[in-house]
């Protein structure tokens, strides 16, 4: 059962990564990347590495997403 869940989770990471690559809208790409990070955090926990999972949740999901969003907004402001 847990192994089946692992395979589905890896598939979700895969779909999110391909979506982030192929999405035309920059903000949606950031969101899909955030999803990949969040789910990767679960996978790290499953592998028995709670420290790495915590780092992934903290850096990958929250701070990187926010920094990307702020950078996108600033470049938009300059282009306008």
């Amino acid at each position: 059962m847990m192994l089946a869940i692992d395979f589905v989770v890896v598939a979700v990471i895969f779909v999110a990564a391909v979506g982030a690559m192929s999405c035309k809208n920059l903000v949606s790409s950031v969101l899909l990347g955030g999803l990949a990070s969040l789910v990767a955090s679960y996978l790290f926990l499953r592998m028995g590495a709670p420290d790495v999972a915590m780092t992934e949740a903290a850096i990958g999901a929250a701070l990187t997403t926010v920094i990307f969003l702020v950078a996108t907004r600033r470049t938009q402001e300059v282009e306008e």
Partner: peptide
């Protein structure tokens, strides 16, 4: 190219799952 790269990495990750 990016999608192919992601595909290869995904297959790699997939093959790692039973080794947890």
């Amino acid at each position: 190219i990016g999608s192919v790269f992601v595909l290869v990495m995904g297959l790699f990750l997939w093959s790692l799952v039973p080794l947890l």
